[in-house]
């Protein structure tokens, strides 16, 4: 939920700073269906059907990052997308080297007040995590308790770059002097 709220805040920052989200119609976004498919699959994995084979869940979870990577590659020339790609790469790397699960800091989860139930979790405290620095180590407390990674922060910085580069008001033409 916090990711959606953060995205909404980024979107709201555009009109609040004089930009117009309508200008997003001017860019050509390729393979628009990849994002919704990736989110849908992740939601099924974590929320709807977290039970069953952990290995299968982990493999499919990594697969969703392949979908995201394909989208980012197809849209790499859009402003901000290279920044988003760096964050996504860091998240994907941490998830891949940990067998399909994002390593989380136990301390961060405790500070955020999270308690995991049974079933597959795409982010979890691991006994022997790799690259924990790229894992979920940033606690976000109430009202939307969660844990974030460095990659997440980079992703949202990239989103802000994209939105504000595309949606800002075109700069006024310089006055032509007839003198």
């Amino acid at each position: 939920m916090i990711l959606i709220v953060l995205a909404a805040v980024c979107l709201a920052s555009v009109p609040l700073t004089g930009g117009s989200l309508k200008r997003l119609a001017q860019i050509r976004v390729r393979w628009v269906w990849l994002g919704p498919v990736a989110v849908l699959v992740q939601t099924v994995l974590v929320t709807i059907a977290p039970g069953g084979s952990h290995q299968l869940h982990a493999l499919i979870h990594i697969g969703t990052y392949v979908l995201v990577g394909a989208f980012l590659w197809a849209n790499r020339r859009l402003p901000g997308v290279p920044v988003i790609s760096v964050g996504t790469f860091l998240n994907g790397l941490a998830i891949t080297v940990n067998g399909g699960v994002m390593p989380a800091s136990a301390r961060a989860e405790k500070l955020a007040g999270l308690a995991l139930g049974k079933g597959f979790h795409n982010s979890a405290v691991l006994a022997h995590p790799h690259l924990l620095w790229f894992g979920d180590i940033i606690p976000v407390p109430w009202p939307l308790p969660n844990v974030l990674s460095v990659g997440d922060c980079i992703i949202y910085a990239g989103l802000l770059v994209l939105l504000h580069r595309v949606c800002r008001r075109p700069e006024a033409e310089p006055a032509i002097s007839l003198a």
């Binding site: 995205a7 992740q42 969703t64 990052y65 979908l67 998240n91 999270l114 990674s149 949202y156 989103l159």
Partner: peptide
Amino acid sequence: VKKFYLYRAASAVAAIVTVVVASGAGQKWG
């Protein structure tokens, strides 16, 4: 034409936001 323009803007928002959310899905869906 205006509806098409709004549709393109909305689809761009949906595509970008969902990719950003999926990119950060190392989190729980709390």
